[in-house]
Simulated assay, not measured.
Amino acid sequence: MVGLIDAISAYLLLPLLLHPLSSPLSLSLSSLPSILPLQFAPQASAHPYITNMLSASILVSIIAIALQFFYALLRLKMTDMQKLRRMMKEVNDWRREYMDAIRKQDKDRIEKLRDKQEYINRLNMEVMQMNFRPMMVFMIPMLIIWWAILPQVFGHTVAISPISLNIVGDLLPITCTKGMIVKDVNSITEEISKHAEAIQNPVIRDQVTSLAKEARELVDAGQYVTARDRILTAYSILNANLENKVQERVPSCIAENEVLLWAWYAIASIAFSGIVMKITRTEMSIN
């Protein structure tokens, strides 16, 4: 949970690193790479290579952990960790002392600490730069894997949860809901029906339109797998009768509480980030 808070804080509150009261400890960028995919979810393949959920969840976890180790090694190669920790400790000590002086209304201490504010700001900037250098190098292979490999190998979902994990609801969906499935099917079938208008043969056009309509009815009845099959059949007929092939799309989920690909990747990354940082001695906690 701490890794998740650190990552979200770093992503959303990065400008505060420049503020003298910001603590690099609370805004550590060490787990930021694991949260980035949450904002850049790929379009998964309609025909993934791996469809078994157990195999998919294990493989995605291994990939996430491997990338965590790769990022940690980059930090070791590109960052002076001892220097980084010293600077972070100095800034954190100053911030703690400054907040204590404000609470006690000690004007002399406040004035004395403010004289050091410009120096602390420079340290904050240097800490941010030292964290960003390895992260920017890491982003290149991570995005290649995330956009070019994972979507083709896995589907939209790679695991299933016994309960809903959507703590903040639709704002950041982690597991599938009926509303998500219905929305996907309605969007896809509308697209299919529009493309069907280009088919010259009225019988085939009606067949495609009928399949799209049937998919909507099936998903309303909770028959998500059958609805997905109807959509794929409609695409097959559609592409067999059009010169310009239409890219196939399928609903993100075929069952409620399935865990989305990017969410499982992020969960695995965050869950193991602390272990990886301890093994590689790249943790940012300061006693």
Rank of each mutant, 00 (worst) to 15 (best):
D229T: 11
D229L: 11
D229F: 03
D229K: 13
R230D: 08
R230T: 00
I231K: 04
I231C: 00
L232H: 02
L232P: 00
L232Q: 13
L232G: 03
L232F: 04
T233W: 04
A234I: 01
A234W: 02
Y235T: 04
Y235S: 03
Y235W: 05
S236M: 06
S236I: 04
S236T: 14
S236W: 00
S236A: 14
S236H: 09
S236N: 14
I237W: 02
L238G: 02
N239H: 08
N239Y: 07
A240L: 07
A240R: 10
N241R: 06
N241H: 15
N241D: 07
L242P: 06
L242A: 03
E243Y: 05
N244P: 05
N244L: 10
K245Q: 13
V246A: 00
V246Q: 07
V246P: 02
Q247M: 08
E248I: 15
E248A: 14
R249Y: 09
R249W: 01
R249N: 11
R249D: 07
V250W: 06
V250L: 04
V250G: 09
V250D: 01
V250I: 15
P251T: 09
P251K: 06
P251R: 06
C253Q: 02
C253L: 03
C253E: 03
C253I: 04
C253P: 04
I254C: 04
I254D: 05
A255L: 11
A255Y: 05
E256M: 11
E256C: 02
E256P: 08
N257K: 10
N257F: 08
N257H: 14
E258V: 05
E258Y: 03
E258I: 09
V259N: 01
V259E: 05
V259S: 08
V259C: 06
V259I: 15
V259W: 01
L260V: 12
L260D: 01
L260A: 11
L260C: 03
L260Q: 10
L260N: 00
L261F: 03
L261Q: 09
L261D: 00
W262E: 12
W262A: 13
A263W: 07
A263Q: 05
W264Q: 11
W264M: 10
W264F: 12
W264L: 13
Y265Q: 09
A266K: 02
A266W: 05
A266P: 07
A266C: 14
A266I: 08
I267E: 03
I267H: 01
I267F: 15
I267Y: 09
I267A: 12
I267G: 07
I267R: 02
A268E: 09
A268M: 13
A268F: 08
A268R: 03
S269E: 05
S269P: 06
I270V: 15
I270A: 01
A271E: 10
A271T: 14
A271H: 10
F272S: 13
F272W: 14
S273A: 15
S273T: 12
G274E: 13
I275H: 12
I275D: 12
I275E: 09
V276S: 07
V276W: 04
M277P: 03
M277W: 10
M277S: 15
